[in-house]
């Protein structure tokens, strides 16, 4: 499998001394629909910015389809399409001009530039608006304009930085469907988001970034399985010398009077206690063991819930 993106030991220290990325490694295979999930301020936009050269890295290497961005930046950039988090087109330009111009920056001759612009404006439902000035578009349309602009040179890797932040539900669904179609046609997609729901819905792989570090990088299925188990610490009356044989449960002995047991959300605690009783183990007290990943998820899920409550359309965030 070809690697669409490969990042090694990437660090970024901003001029003010803030270390936004603390050495991250990441591999995205060709054809993946990949989520970079993390709370606000985690370093997602910094990572995207470095990949597309808007942010200067402090150290580390990046290659896009095997091309090192430091060695052949021109080739690497041809592979890459970027949809930034904030609107960054000229507000006074016409929609069609923005696309044709962008194609020109990639060296596409005028005729092809015009064909491609029409193709992607149609696909994103903006063809009717082609002669409007960009500032006249609604927030959702502006976001779609940026997606069309990123596709006009037909990149093999499309990167979207929070593509649906502040977009209403209907439009978010339409955007998701559009991205699925693009992915099905062979374009590798990486999107950043701070909504678990979005990553879960779209992506086959999820990396979680928090405070400048990748804390998890796995398939969506495995991640969800991990999240559906809880770890409990049980203090027992009896002294134990080994983890008892409990069919259906995994865990470990912490010390002679405590056990750590993983319980899937679907399993009942009564059954667990019953099995323990069979081994003559009596539980005196029990607490939920939280780990960093779970805490992170609570905040991510919380962010999702907040959004469902009050989403506004567009705007710089």
């Amino acid at each position: 499998m070809t690697s669409a993106l490969s990042i090694r030991s990437l660090r970024k220290v901003y001029d003010n001394g803030l270390e936004a990325l603390k050495g991250i490694d990441l591999d995205v295979a060709e054809g993946d629909f990949f989520a970079l999930l993390g709370p606000n301020g985690a370093g997602k936009s910094t990572a995207i910015g470095i990949i597309c050269s808007l942010v200067r890295k402090t150290s580390g290497t990046i290659s896009v389809f095997g091309t090192d961005i430091d060695r052949d930046f021109s080739q690497a950039k041809q592979y890459l399409g970027v949809v930034p988090q904030e609107f960054n087109f000229q507000q006074f330009e016409k929609v069609i001009d923005i696309l044709v111009t962008q194609a020109g920056y990639y060296g596409l001759p005028r005729r092809i530039a015009e064909e491609r612009s029409e193709k992607y404006l149609r696909q994103l439902g903006l063809w009717d608006k082609r002669d409007n000035r960009a500032r006249m578009l609604s927030g959702g349309m502006k976001r779609r304009l940026m997606i069309a602009r990123a596709l006009v040179h037909e990149p093999r890797l499309l990167i979207l930085d929070e593509p649906t932040a502040g977009v209403d539900i209907e439009l978010r669904r339409a955007t998701w469907q559009f991205l699925r179609d693009i992915n099905a046609r062979g374009v590798t997609i990486i999107l950043t988001t701070h909504y678990l729901e979005e990553a879960e819905n779209l992506c086959n792989r999820i990396a979680i970034i928090d405070r400048g570090r990748i804390v998890e990088n796995t398939s969506t299925r495995q991640l969800l399985a991990k999240l559906s188990t809880e770890t409990f610490v049980l203090d027992t009356r009896e002294q134990l010398d080994a983890f008892p044989d409990l069919p259906g449960y995994t865990g470990r002995l912490v010390d002679s009077h405590s056990l750590e047991i993983e319980v899937e959300k679907s399993q009942s605690l009564n059954e667990l206690f019953a099995s323990l009783a069979e081994h003559n183990v009596h539980v005196l007290s029990m607490r939920n063991k939280t780990n960093r990943l779970e805490e992170l998820f609570v905040s991510l899920v919380q962010a999702g819930a907040d959004r469902a409550g009050g989403g506004t359309d567009g705007g710089r965030s």
Partner: peptide, 18 residues
């Protein structure tokens, strides 16, 4: 400067233009 201010300079900066 207008392109810098509106962010649209990024359209050029992300492209392969030397």
């Amino acid at each position: 400067y207008g392109n810098k201010f509106q962010g649209s300079i990024e359209e050029i900066l992300v492209s392969p233009v030397p």
